[in-house]
Design a protein around this nucleic acid. Structure first.
Length: 517
RNA sequence: GCCGACGUAGCUCAGCGGCAGAGCAGCUGUUUCGUAAACAGCAGGUCCUCGGUUCAAAUCCGAGCGUCGGCUCCA
Protein backbone atom coordinates (compact mmCIF):
# COMPACT_ATOMS: atom_id res chain seq x y z
CA UNK A 1 0.00 0.00 0.00
CA UNK A 2 2.87 2.30 0.82
CA UNK A 3 4.28 1.43 -2.61
CA UNK A 4 1.19 3.06 -4.08
CA UNK A 5 0.86 0.70 -7.05
CA UNK A 6 -1.55 2.07 -9.61
CA UNK A 7 -4.43 -0.20 -10.62
CA UNK A 8 -4.28 -0.64 -14.38
CA UNK A 9 -7.23 -1.92 -16.33
CA UNK A 10 -6.54 -3.89 -19.44
CA UNK A 11 -8.86 -5.61 -21.81
CA UNK A 12 -7.99 -8.86 -23.47
CA UNK A 13 -9.87 -10.60 -26.27
CA UNK A 14 -12.07 -13.29 -24.65
CA UNK A 15 -10.09 -16.34 -25.84
CA UNK A 16 -6.80 -14.78 -24.85
CA UNK A 17 -8.20 -13.89 -21.43
CA UNK A 18 -9.42 -17.43 -20.90
CA UNK A 19 -6.08 -18.88 -21.98
CA UNK A 20 -4.30 -16.57 -19.54
CA UNK A 21 -6.23 -17.92 -16.53
CA UNK A 22 -6.06 -21.53 -17.73
CA UNK A 23 -2.30 -21.20 -17.93
CA UNK A 24 -2.15 -19.76 -14.42
CA UNK A 25 -4.16 -22.67 -13.05
CA UNK A 26 -7.16 -20.62 -11.97
CA UNK A 27 -10.17 -22.88 -12.60
CA UNK A 28 -12.66 -20.59 -10.81
CA UNK A 29 -11.81 -17.60 -12.97
CA UNK A 30 -12.07 -19.78 -16.04
CA UNK A 31 -15.51 -20.93 -14.88
CA UNK A 32 -16.70 -17.34 -14.57
CA UNK A 33 -15.46 -16.60 -18.09
CA UNK A 34 -17.12 -19.72 -19.46
CA UNK A 35 -20.39 -18.68 -17.80
CA UNK A 36 -20.10 -15.24 -19.33
CA UNK A 37 -19.48 -16.79 -22.71
CA UNK A 38 -22.46 -19.12 -22.30
CA UNK A 39 -24.68 -16.23 -21.30
CA UNK A 40 -23.67 -14.02 -24.20
CA UNK A 41 -24.10 -16.81 -26.75
CA UNK A 42 -27.54 -17.53 -25.25
CA UNK A 43 -28.57 -13.89 -25.52
CA UNK A 44 -26.99 -13.51 -28.94
CA UNK A 45 -24.84 -10.60 -27.83
CA UNK A 46 -21.13 -10.61 -28.54
CA UNK A 47 -18.83 -11.78 -25.73
CA UNK A 48 -17.39 -8.67 -24.06
CA UNK A 49 -13.63 -8.44 -23.79
CA UNK A 50 -12.08 -9.86 -20.64
CA UNK A 51 -11.13 -7.05 -18.30
CA UNK A 52 -8.28 -7.54 -15.88
CA UNK A 53 -6.72 -5.25 -13.34
CA UNK A 54 -3.11 -5.31 -12.40
CA UNK A 55 -1.15 -3.61 -9.73
CA UNK A 56 2.47 -4.36 -9.18
CA UNK A 57 3.03 -8.05 -9.76
CA UNK A 58 -0.62 -9.05 -9.19
CA UNK A 59 -3.06 -9.54 -12.07
CA UNK A 60 -6.66 -10.52 -11.54
CA UNK A 61 -9.92 -10.90 -13.37
CA UNK A 62 -12.35 -8.20 -12.36
CA UNK A 63 -15.06 -6.13 -13.90
CA UNK A 64 -14.02 -3.16 -11.74
CA UNK A 65 -14.12 -0.33 -11.06
CA UNK A 66 -11.13 0.12 -8.75
CA UNK A 67 -9.63 3.09 -6.94
CA UNK A 68 -6.75 4.63 -8.84
CA UNK A 69 -3.92 3.09 -6.85
CA UNK A 70 -3.15 1.08 -3.74
CA UNK A 71 -2.14 4.26 -1.92
CA UNK A 72 -5.69 5.59 -2.26
CA UNK A 73 -7.16 2.83 -0.10
CA UNK A 74 -8.54 4.32 3.12
CA UNK A 75 -7.92 3.26 6.71
CA UNK A 76 -8.70 -0.43 6.97
CA UNK A 77 -8.62 -3.37 9.34
CA UNK A 78 -8.72 -7.06 8.59
CA UNK A 79 -11.34 -8.74 10.73
CA UNK A 80 -11.53 -12.46 10.22
CA UNK A 81 -10.90 -15.42 8.00
CA UNK A 82 -13.54 -17.98 7.10
CA UNK A 83 -14.41 -20.62 4.57
CA UNK A 84 -17.07 -19.82 2.04
CA UNK A 85 -18.57 -22.17 -0.51
CA UNK A 86 -17.76 -21.39 -4.11
CA UNK A 87 -20.73 -19.44 -5.40
CA UNK A 88 -22.62 -20.03 -2.14
CA UNK A 89 -23.32 -23.68 -2.92
CA UNK A 90 -22.51 -26.15 -0.15
CA UNK A 91 -21.95 -28.98 -2.64
CA UNK A 92 -19.10 -27.06 -4.24
CA UNK A 93 -15.54 -26.52 -3.04
CA UNK A 94 -14.84 -24.14 -0.23
CA UNK A 95 -12.57 -21.17 -0.66
CA UNK A 96 -10.88 -19.09 2.01
CA UNK A 97 -12.37 -15.66 2.37
CA UNK A 98 -10.64 -12.85 4.24
CA UNK A 99 -12.96 -10.27 5.77
CA UNK A 100 -11.90 -6.69 6.22
CA UNK A 101 -13.38 -3.24 6.40
CA UNK A 102 -12.25 0.01 4.78
CA UNK A 103 -13.39 3.54 5.63
CA UNK A 104 -12.83 6.98 4.18
CA UNK A 105 -11.20 8.28 7.34
CA UNK A 106 -9.57 6.92 10.45
CA UNK A 107 -12.43 8.46 12.49
CA UNK A 108 -15.02 6.48 10.51
CA UNK A 109 -13.05 3.29 11.00
CA UNK A 110 -12.77 4.01 14.72
CA UNK A 111 -16.52 4.60 14.97
CA UNK A 112 -17.19 1.31 13.22
CA UNK A 113 -14.83 -0.57 15.51
CA UNK A 114 -16.31 1.13 18.57
CA UNK A 115 -19.83 0.04 17.60
CA UNK A 116 -18.53 -3.44 17.04
CA UNK A 117 -16.99 -3.44 20.50
CA UNK A 118 -20.27 -2.13 21.99
CA UNK A 119 -22.15 -4.96 20.34
CA UNK A 120 -19.63 -7.40 21.77
CA UNK A 121 -20.07 -5.99 25.26
CA UNK A 122 -23.82 -6.36 25.16
CA UNK A 123 -23.69 -9.81 23.60
CA UNK A 124 -26.35 -11.82 25.43
CA UNK A 125 -23.98 -14.76 25.81
CA UNK A 126 -21.62 -12.56 27.79
CA UNK A 127 -24.31 -10.76 29.79
CA UNK A 128 -26.09 -14.05 30.46
CA UNK A 129 -23.04 -15.12 32.46
CA UNK A 130 -22.48 -11.74 34.09
CA UNK A 131 -26.11 -11.37 35.16
CA UNK A 132 -26.46 -15.06 36.06
CA UNK A 133 -29.43 -15.59 33.74
CA UNK A 134 -28.61 -18.82 31.91
CA UNK A 135 -25.77 -21.06 30.83
CA UNK A 136 -24.96 -23.60 28.15
CA UNK A 137 -23.35 -26.98 28.75
CA UNK A 138 -21.95 -29.53 26.39
CA UNK A 139 -24.26 -32.20 27.81
CA UNK A 140 -27.02 -30.53 25.80
CA UNK A 141 -25.61 -28.40 23.01
CA UNK A 142 -27.95 -25.71 21.75
CA UNK A 143 -30.18 -25.77 24.82
CA UNK A 144 -30.14 -23.14 27.53
CA UNK A 145 -30.05 -23.99 31.23
CA UNK A 146 -32.16 -21.25 32.84
CA UNK A 147 -30.87 -19.98 36.16
CA UNK A 148 -33.28 -18.52 38.73
CA UNK A 149 -32.89 -14.94 37.52
CA UNK A 150 -33.29 -15.88 33.86
CA UNK A 151 -36.31 -17.94 34.74
CA UNK A 152 -37.82 -14.91 36.50
CA UNK A 153 -37.60 -12.97 33.25
CA UNK A 154 -39.07 -15.94 31.44
CA UNK A 155 -41.99 -16.19 33.84
CA UNK A 156 -42.60 -12.46 33.73
CA UNK A 157 -42.87 -12.41 29.94
CA UNK A 158 -45.01 -15.52 29.98
CA UNK A 159 -47.40 -14.06 32.56
CA UNK A 160 -47.70 -10.83 30.60
CA UNK A 161 -48.67 -12.52 27.36
CA UNK A 162 -51.00 -14.91 29.21
CA UNK A 163 -52.81 -11.87 30.57
CA UNK A 164 -53.25 -10.53 27.03
CA UNK A 165 -54.41 -13.90 25.77
CA UNK A 166 -56.99 -14.26 28.53
CA UNK A 167 -58.32 -10.80 27.72
CA UNK A 168 -58.42 -11.53 24.00
CA UNK A 169 -60.36 -14.76 24.22
CA UNK A 170 -57.67 -17.43 23.97
CA UNK A 171 -57.85 -20.77 25.73
CA UNK A 172 -54.59 -22.37 26.73
CA UNK A 173 -53.89 -25.98 25.75
CA UNK A 174 -50.94 -28.32 26.10
CA UNK A 175 -49.95 -31.17 23.80
CA UNK A 176 -47.33 -33.95 23.96
CA UNK A 177 -43.70 -33.45 23.04
CA UNK A 178 -43.10 -37.02 21.90
CA UNK A 179 -45.27 -37.89 18.91
CA UNK A 180 -45.54 -40.64 16.31
CA UNK A 181 -43.90 -40.10 12.95
CA UNK A 182 -47.19 -40.70 11.19
CA UNK A 183 -48.37 -37.30 12.43
CA UNK A 184 -45.66 -35.66 10.36
CA UNK A 185 -46.50 -37.86 7.38
CA UNK A 186 -50.03 -36.55 7.59
CA UNK A 187 -48.95 -32.93 7.99
CA UNK A 188 -46.53 -33.28 5.09
CA UNK A 189 -43.43 -32.47 7.14
CA UNK A 190 -41.88 -35.94 7.36
CA UNK A 191 -40.38 -36.21 3.87
CA UNK A 192 -39.22 -32.59 3.85
CA UNK A 193 -38.07 -31.93 7.39
CA UNK A 194 -37.24 -35.29 8.91
CA UNK A 195 -33.56 -34.27 9.04
CA UNK A 196 -34.46 -31.38 11.30
CA UNK A 197 -36.33 -33.54 13.77
CA UNK A 198 -34.97 -35.62 16.59
CA UNK A 199 -36.20 -39.06 15.71
CA UNK A 200 -36.30 -42.16 17.82
CA UNK A 201 -37.89 -45.55 17.83
CA UNK A 202 -40.44 -46.66 20.37
CA UNK A 203 -41.45 -50.33 20.25
CA UNK A 204 -40.41 -50.50 16.63
CA UNK A 205 -42.39 -47.44 15.58
CA UNK A 206 -40.88 -44.15 14.45
CA UNK A 207 -41.43 -41.25 16.83
CA UNK A 208 -40.03 -37.74 17.05
CA UNK A 209 -39.78 -34.82 19.42
CA UNK A 210 -42.12 -32.18 18.07
CA UNK A 211 -40.44 -29.35 16.15
CA UNK A 212 -43.73 -27.38 16.07
CA UNK A 213 -47.08 -27.45 17.77
CA UNK A 214 -49.55 -26.95 14.99
CA UNK A 215 -50.58 -30.46 13.90
CA UNK A 216 -51.34 -31.55 17.45
CA UNK A 217 -53.72 -28.70 18.14
CA UNK A 218 -55.98 -30.07 15.38
CA UNK A 219 -56.63 -33.16 17.52
CA UNK A 220 -58.25 -30.94 20.09
CA UNK A 221 -60.25 -29.22 17.39
CA UNK A 222 -61.49 -32.53 16.03
CA UNK A 223 -62.29 -34.02 19.42
CA UNK A 224 -65.90 -33.02 18.81
CA UNK A 225 -68.12 -31.66 16.09
CA UNK A 226 -67.62 -27.91 15.73
CA UNK A 227 -70.43 -25.50 15.01
CA UNK A 228 -70.04 -22.20 13.20
CA UNK A 229 -71.04 -20.74 16.58
CA UNK A 230 -67.88 -22.19 18.19
CA UNK A 231 -65.61 -20.18 15.94
CA UNK A 232 -63.29 -18.47 16.25
CA UNK A 233 -61.47 -20.92 18.52
CA UNK A 234 -58.19 -19.56 19.82
CA UNK A 235 -55.84 -22.16 21.29
CA UNK A 236 -52.63 -20.89 22.80
CA UNK A 237 -49.79 -23.17 23.81
CA UNK A 238 -46.40 -22.59 25.39
CA UNK A 239 -45.01 -25.47 23.41
CA UNK A 240 -41.66 -26.99 24.17
CA UNK A 241 -40.00 -27.66 20.82
CA UNK A 242 -36.88 -29.42 19.60
CA UNK A 243 -35.31 -28.84 16.23
CA UNK A 244 -32.17 -30.62 15.17
CA UNK A 245 -30.27 -27.63 13.84
CA UNK A 246 -26.96 -28.43 12.22
CA UNK A 247 -24.18 -28.16 14.74
CA UNK A 248 -22.36 -25.30 13.02
CA UNK A 249 -25.42 -23.07 13.08
CA UNK A 250 -26.03 -22.99 16.83
CA UNK A 251 -25.48 -19.61 18.48
CA UNK A 252 -26.36 -18.64 22.04
CA UNK A 253 -30.08 -18.12 22.60
CA UNK A 254 -30.71 -16.92 19.07
CA UNK A 255 -30.24 -20.30 17.41
CA UNK A 256 -31.06 -23.22 19.66
CA UNK A 257 -32.19 -26.83 19.47
CA UNK A 258 -34.65 -26.57 22.32
CA UNK A 259 -36.97 -23.63 22.85
CA UNK A 260 -40.45 -22.66 23.89
CA UNK A 261 -42.81 -20.73 21.68
CA UNK A 262 -45.75 -18.60 22.75
CA UNK A 263 -47.68 -20.29 20.01
CA UNK A 264 -51.37 -20.13 19.17
CA UNK A 265 -53.67 -21.54 16.54
CA UNK A 266 -56.85 -19.72 15.71
CA UNK A 267 -59.56 -21.62 13.86
CA UNK A 268 -61.80 -19.15 12.08
CA UNK A 269 -64.58 -18.98 9.51
CA UNK A 270 -63.57 -17.25 6.29
CA UNK A 271 -65.83 -14.30 7.17
CA UNK A 272 -63.99 -13.86 10.48
CA UNK A 273 -60.50 -13.67 9.01
CA UNK A 274 -60.40 -9.88 8.67
CA UNK A 275 -61.45 -9.23 12.26
CA UNK A 276 -59.00 -11.77 13.62
CA UNK A 277 -56.12 -10.32 11.62
CA UNK A 278 -56.94 -6.83 12.84
CA UNK A 279 -57.03 -8.08 16.42
CA UNK A 280 -53.70 -9.87 15.95
CA UNK A 281 -52.00 -6.77 14.59
CA UNK A 282 -53.31 -4.92 17.66
CA UNK A 283 -51.96 -7.67 19.87
CA UNK A 284 -48.50 -7.45 18.32
CA UNK A 285 -48.48 -3.69 18.73
CA UNK A 286 -49.58 -3.92 22.35
CA UNK A 287 -46.97 -6.50 23.31
CA UNK A 288 -44.06 -4.85 21.51
CA UNK A 289 -45.05 -1.53 23.06
CA UNK A 290 -44.19 -2.97 26.49
CA UNK A 291 -40.56 -3.01 25.41
CA UNK A 292 -40.61 0.27 23.49
CA UNK A 293 -40.18 -1.66 20.26
CA UNK A 294 -41.74 -0.57 16.99
CA UNK A 295 -42.89 -3.58 14.99
CA UNK A 296 -42.57 -3.47 11.21
CA UNK A 297 -44.58 -5.86 9.11
CA UNK A 298 -43.51 -7.86 6.09
CA UNK A 299 -46.17 -9.48 3.98
CA UNK A 300 -45.00 -12.73 2.40
CA UNK A 301 -47.11 -13.69 -0.60
CA UNK A 302 -47.78 -16.96 -2.41
CA UNK A 303 -44.67 -18.92 -3.32
CA UNK A 304 -44.41 -20.87 -6.57
CA UNK A 305 -44.72 -24.27 -4.90
CA UNK A 306 -47.89 -23.35 -2.99
CA UNK A 307 -50.66 -25.86 -2.34
CA UNK A 308 -54.37 -25.20 -2.34
CA UNK A 309 -57.01 -23.31 -4.26
CA UNK A 310 -55.52 -20.25 -6.01
CA UNK A 311 -58.78 -18.34 -5.58
CA UNK A 312 -58.59 -18.84 -1.84
CA UNK A 313 -55.00 -17.60 -1.83
CA UNK A 314 -55.99 -14.53 -3.72
CA UNK A 315 -58.82 -13.78 -1.33
CA UNK A 316 -56.66 -14.29 1.75
CA UNK A 317 -53.85 -12.17 0.35
CA UNK A 318 -56.29 -9.39 -0.48
CA UNK A 319 -57.62 -9.44 3.06
CA UNK A 320 -54.19 -9.38 4.62
CA UNK A 321 -53.09 -6.44 2.54
CA UNK A 322 -56.27 -4.55 3.27
CA UNK A 323 -55.92 -5.18 6.99
CA UNK A 324 -52.31 -4.03 6.95
CA UNK A 325 -53.20 -0.86 5.05
CA UNK A 326 -56.06 0.11 7.29
CA UNK A 327 -54.00 -0.57 10.43
CA UNK A 328 -51.73 2.24 9.30
CA UNK A 329 -48.71 0.12 10.24
CA UNK A 330 -45.45 0.37 8.37
CA UNK A 331 -45.32 -2.61 6.10
CA UNK A 332 -43.52 -3.99 3.11
CA UNK A 333 -44.08 -6.89 0.79
CA UNK A 334 -41.81 -9.83 0.22
CA UNK A 335 -43.16 -11.52 -2.90
CA UNK A 336 -43.30 -15.33 -2.76
CA UNK A 337 -42.03 -15.39 0.82
CA UNK A 338 -45.12 -17.16 2.17
CA UNK A 339 -44.94 -20.79 3.23
CA UNK A 340 -46.25 -23.51 0.96
CA UNK A 341 -49.52 -23.56 2.92
CA UNK A 342 -49.96 -19.95 4.01
CA UNK A 343 -49.44 -16.31 3.17
CA UNK A 344 -47.87 -14.69 6.21
CA UNK A 345 -46.94 -11.51 8.00
CA UNK A 346 -43.53 -11.49 9.63
CA UNK A 347 -42.81 -8.90 12.26
CA UNK A 348 -39.43 -7.21 12.42
CA UNK A 349 -37.94 -4.86 14.97
CA UNK A 350 -34.84 -2.71 15.08
CA UNK A 351 -32.87 -2.86 18.31
CA UNK A 352 -30.93 -0.18 20.18
CA UNK A 353 -27.90 -0.77 17.97
CA UNK A 354 -29.92 -0.46 14.77
CA UNK A 355 -29.82 -4.17 14.05
CA UNK A 356 -32.89 -5.76 12.53
CA UNK A 357 -34.44 -8.94 13.93
CA UNK A 358 -37.27 -11.11 12.70
CA UNK A 359 -39.61 -11.73 15.59
CA UNK A 360 -43.26 -12.70 15.53
CA UNK A 361 -45.07 -14.37 12.67
CA UNK A 362 -48.73 -14.60 11.61
CA UNK A 363 -49.59 -17.25 9.03
CA UNK A 364 -52.98 -17.64 7.40
CA UNK A 365 -53.12 -21.37 6.85
CA UNK A 366 -55.43 -22.30 4.00
CA UNK A 367 -54.23 -25.81 3.44
CA UNK A 368 -52.08 -27.61 5.91
CA UNK A 369 -54.15 -27.85 9.05
CA UNK A 370 -57.60 -27.44 7.48
CA UNK A 371 -57.19 -29.90 4.63
CA UNK A 372 -54.52 -32.36 5.69
CA UNK A 373 -56.26 -32.83 9.01
CA UNK A 374 -59.70 -32.59 7.50
CA UNK A 375 -61.07 -29.89 9.79
CA UNK A 376 -64.70 -28.95 9.43
CA UNK A 377 -67.45 -27.03 11.15
CA UNK A 378 -71.18 -27.22 10.64
CA UNK A 379 -72.38 -23.97 9.15
CA UNK A 380 -75.73 -22.23 9.75
CA UNK A 381 -77.20 -24.01 6.74
CA UNK A 382 -76.25 -27.43 8.09
CA UNK A 383 -73.42 -27.87 5.56
CA UNK A 384 -69.91 -28.91 6.58
CA UNK A 385 -67.38 -26.23 5.75
CA UNK A 386 -63.61 -25.80 6.09
CA UNK A 387 -62.30 -23.37 8.67
CA UNK A 388 -59.11 -21.41 8.15
CA UNK A 389 -56.30 -21.64 10.67
CA UNK A 390 -54.06 -18.81 11.77
CA UNK A 391 -50.70 -19.72 13.27
CA UNK A 392 -49.29 -16.97 15.40
CA UNK A 393 -46.46 -16.40 17.84
CA UNK A 394 -45.93 -12.99 19.38
CA UNK A 395 -42.58 -13.37 21.10
CA UNK A 396 -41.74 -16.24 18.78
CA UNK A 397 -39.20 -18.30 20.67
CA UNK A 398 -39.00 -17.06 24.27
CA UNK A 399 -35.31 -17.97 24.28
CA UNK A 400 -34.55 -15.89 21.26
CA UNK A 401 -36.77 -13.04 22.43
CA UNK A 402 -35.00 -12.84 25.78
CA UNK A 403 -31.62 -12.98 24.01
CA UNK A 404 -32.62 -10.02 21.87
CA UNK A 405 -34.00 -8.12 24.89
CA UNK A 406 -30.71 -8.62 26.73
CA UNK A 407 -28.82 -7.06 23.83
CA UNK A 408 -31.37 -4.32 23.19
CA UNK A 409 -31.30 -3.13 26.81
CA UNK A 410 -27.65 -4.15 27.35
CA UNK A 411 -28.93 -6.09 30.37
CA UNK A 412 -30.59 -3.01 31.94
CA UNK A 413 -34.15 -4.32 31.67
CA UNK A 414 -37.17 -2.13 32.27
CA UNK A 415 -38.31 -2.34 35.88
CA UNK A 416 -41.19 -4.68 35.12
CA UNK A 417 -38.85 -7.22 33.47
CA UNK A 418 -35.80 -6.90 35.74
CA UNK A 419 -35.14 -10.13 37.67
CA UNK A 420 -34.13 -8.08 40.72
CA UNK A 421 -36.07 -4.83 40.77
CA UNK A 422 -34.51 -3.29 43.85
CA UNK A 423 -31.66 -3.98 46.26
CA UNK A 424 -31.98 -2.65 49.77
CA UNK A 425 -28.60 -1.45 51.00
CA UNK A 426 -28.17 -1.10 54.75
CA UNK A 427 -25.16 1.08 55.51
CA UNK A 428 -24.11 -0.68 58.72
CA UNK A 429 -25.13 -3.87 60.52
CA UNK A 430 -27.56 -2.01 62.75
CA UNK A 431 -29.58 -1.11 59.63
CA UNK A 432 -29.93 -4.72 58.45
CA UNK A 433 -33.10 -5.49 60.37
CA UNK A 434 -34.96 -2.37 59.18
CA UNK A 435 -33.68 -3.20 55.67
CA UNK A 436 -35.37 -6.59 55.87
CA UNK A 437 -38.55 -4.90 57.05
CA UNK A 438 -38.44 -2.55 54.07
CA UNK A 439 -37.90 -5.50 51.75
CA UNK A 440 -40.96 -7.21 53.22
CA UNK A 441 -43.05 -4.11 52.51
CA UNK A 442 -41.84 -4.04 48.91
CA UNK A 443 -42.47 -7.76 48.46
CA UNK A 444 -46.02 -7.33 49.69
CA UNK A 445 -46.45 -5.07 46.68
CA UNK A 446 -45.22 -7.86 44.43
CA UNK A 447 -41.74 -6.46 43.90
CA UNK A 448 -38.66 -8.65 43.42
CA UNK A 449 -36.31 -7.38 46.10
CA UNK A 450 -33.02 -8.42 47.66
CA UNK A 451 -31.24 -7.15 50.76
CA UNK A 452 -27.47 -6.79 50.63
CA UNK A 453 -26.64 -7.43 54.28
CA UNK A 454 -23.08 -8.53 53.53
CA UNK A 455 -20.30 -6.82 55.48
CA UNK A 456 -19.19 -4.96 52.37
CA UNK A 457 -19.05 -1.19 52.52
CA UNK A 458 -21.99 0.70 51.09
CA UNK A 459 -19.91 1.84 48.11
CA UNK A 460 -19.16 -1.72 47.19
CA UNK A 461 -22.80 -2.76 47.56
CA UNK A 462 -23.75 0.00 45.16
CA UNK A 463 -21.09 -1.08 42.74
CA UNK A 464 -22.29 -4.68 42.80
CA UNK A 465 -25.94 -3.70 42.30
CA UNK A 466 -24.83 -1.41 39.50
CA UNK A 467 -22.97 -4.26 37.80
CA UNK A 468 -26.10 -6.38 38.06
CA UNK A 469 -28.02 -3.49 36.44
CA UNK A 470 -30.56 -3.45 39.26
CA UNK A 471 -32.99 -0.57 38.55
CA UNK A 472 -33.24 0.74 42.13
CA UNK A 473 -30.81 0.77 45.04
CA UNK A 474 -32.48 1.73 48.28
CA UNK A 475 -30.00 3.08 50.79
CA UNK A 476 -30.82 2.82 54.45
CA UNK A 477 -28.72 4.51 57.17
CA UNK A 478 -29.35 6.20 60.50
CA UNK A 479 -31.31 9.07 58.97
CA UNK A 480 -33.63 6.77 57.00
CA UNK A 481 -34.18 4.30 59.84
CA UNK A 482 -35.06 7.22 62.12
CA UNK A 483 -37.62 8.57 59.65
CA UNK A 484 -38.79 5.18 58.26
CA UNK A 485 -37.68 6.23 54.78
CA UNK A 486 -35.19 5.00 52.19
CA UNK A 487 -32.99 6.93 49.77
CA UNK A 488 -33.38 5.55 46.24
CA UNK A 489 -30.55 5.64 43.74
CA UNK A 490 -31.31 4.59 40.18
CA UNK A 491 -28.90 2.57 38.09
CA UNK A 492 -28.55 5.69 35.93
CA UNK A 493 -26.77 7.18 38.97
CA UNK A 494 -29.60 9.53 39.92
CA UNK A 495 -30.02 10.15 43.65
CA UNK A 496 -33.69 10.55 44.50
CA UNK A 497 -34.95 12.21 47.68
CA UNK A 498 -35.67 9.94 50.66
CA UNK A 499 -39.16 8.52 50.54
CA UNK A 500 -41.46 6.76 52.99
CA UNK A 501 -41.56 2.97 52.65
CA UNK A 502 -45.19 2.61 51.71
CA UNK A 503 -45.11 5.47 49.19
CA UNK A 504 -41.96 4.07 47.64
CA UNK A 505 -43.48 0.61 47.32
CA UNK A 506 -46.60 2.00 45.70
CA UNK A 507 -44.61 4.13 43.29
CA UNK A 508 -42.48 1.19 42.12
CA UNK A 509 -45.45 -1.15 41.93
CA UNK A 510 -47.20 1.39 39.74
CA UNK A 511 -44.20 1.57 37.43
CA UNK A 512 -44.29 -2.21 37.14
CA UNK A 513 -48.04 -2.31 36.48
CA UNK A 514 -47.73 0.27 33.72
CA UNK A 515 -44.80 -1.60 32.22
CA UNK A 516 -42.86 1.63 31.86
CA UNK A 517 -39.93 1.21 29.51
C1' G B 1 -22.85 -30.40 8.07
C1' C B 2 -18.39 -27.49 5.74
C1' C B 3 -13.81 -23.97 6.46
C1' G B 4 -10.85 -21.59 10.22
C1' A B 5 -9.63 -20.29 15.24
C1' C B 6 -10.11 -21.40 20.23
C1' G B 7 -10.86 -24.78 24.92
C1' U B 8 -5.96 -23.69 31.64
C1' A B 9 -9.56 -22.23 38.85
C1' G B 10 -16.70 -20.12 39.27
C1' C B 11 -15.39 -15.62 35.69
C1' U B 12 -11.56 -12.90 32.67
C1' C B 13 -7.01 -14.48 31.08
C1' A B 14 -1.23 -15.45 31.31
C1' G B 15 1.99 -19.63 30.71
C1' C B 16 3.32 -22.74 24.86
C1' G B 17 8.45 -29.31 26.01
C1' G B 18 11.21 -29.43 32.44
C1' C B 19 7.43 -27.57 40.05
C1' A B 20 0.10 -25.19 37.55
C1' G B 21 -0.06 -19.01 37.59
C1' A B 22 -2.58 -13.75 38.23
C1' G B 23 -6.82 -10.49 39.02
C1' C B 24 -11.85 -10.76 40.35
C1' A B 25 -15.33 -14.05 42.70
C1' G B 26 -15.45 -17.83 47.09
C1' C B 27 -14.20 -19.04 52.38
C1' U B 28 -12.17 -17.25 57.34
C1' G B 29 -10.90 -13.17 60.33
C1' U B 30 -10.64 -7.92 61.14
C1' U B 31 -13.52 -3.56 59.71
C1' U B 32 -19.66 -1.05 60.52
C1' C B 33 -18.48 2.43 56.83
C1' G B 34 -23.39 7.86 53.37
C1' U B 35 -23.94 6.79 46.92
C1' A B 36 -19.29 2.53 41.50
C1' A B 37 -14.06 -1.75 44.63
C1' A B 38 -11.94 -1.60 53.09
C1' C B 39 -7.70 -4.85 54.84
C1' A B 40 -5.32 -9.57 55.77
C1' G B 41 -5.07 -14.74 55.39
C1' C B 42 -6.81 -19.38 53.28
C1' A B 43 -8.67 -22.52 49.81
C1' G B 44 -9.55 -23.60 44.83
C1' G B 45 -7.13 -27.63 38.82
C1' U B 46 -9.26 -34.42 34.80
C1' C B 47 -4.80 -27.62 31.82
C1' C B 48 -12.09 -30.34 27.34
C1' U B 49 -11.76 -36.02 26.35
C1' C B 50 -9.17 -40.18 24.27
C1' G B 51 -4.86 -41.82 21.84
C1' G B 52 0.24 -40.95 20.02
C1' U B 53 5.49 -38.74 19.99
C1' U B 54 9.18 -37.86 24.00
C1' C B 55 13.52 -39.35 29.46
C1' A B 56 9.60 -35.64 30.28
C1' A B 57 3.32 -33.02 27.35
C1' A B 58 -1.15 -27.84 29.64
C1' U B 59 2.65 -27.06 25.76
C1' C B 60 4.11 -31.13 19.83
C1' C B 61 0.90 -34.66 16.55
C1' G B 62 -3.99 -37.30 15.51
C1' A B 63 -9.14 -38.19 16.51
C1' G B 64 -13.58 -36.88 19.15
C1' C B 65 -16.66 -33.27 21.84
C1' G B 66 -17.83 -28.16 22.68
C1' U B 67 -17.55 -22.87 21.76
C1' C B 68 -16.64 -18.67 18.57
C1' G B 69 -16.27 -16.27 13.43
C1' G B 70 -18.07 -17.28 8.67
C1' C B 71 -20.52 -20.51 4.72
C1' U B 72 -24.82 -23.40 3.92
C1' C B 73 -29.58 -24.13 6.26
C1' C B 74 -33.65 -21.86 9.16
C1' A B 75 -40.21 -25.39 7.55
Amino acid sequence: MAADHPFVRRELPPDEGRAFFVERGQPFKVEILDDLAARSSASGEPMPPTSVFEHGPFIDLCKGPHVASTGKVGPFKLLSVAGAYWRGDERRPMLQRIYGTVWASQADLDTFLWRREEARKRDHRRLGVQLDLFSFHDVSPGSAFWHPKGQRIWRTLEAAVREVQARRGYEEVSTPILVAGKLWEQSGHWPLYADNMFRLEVEGQPFSLKPMNCPESTFIYRSRVRSYRDLPLRYSEFGRLHRNERSGTLAGLTRVRHFIQDDAHLYVRPDQLGDELRALLGEVKEVYGWFGLQPRYMFGTKPDKALGDPALWEKAEGLILETLRESGATHGIKPKDGTFYAPKIDIYIEDALGREWQMATLQVDLVMLPERFDLTYVDADGQERRPMAIHRAIYGSLERFIGILVEHFAGAFPLWVAPVQAVVIPIADRHAEPARELAAVLRRHGLRVEVDDSDNRMQNKIRLAQEQKVPYMLVLGDREVEARTASPRTRAGEKQPAEGWEALAERLAMEVRERTV
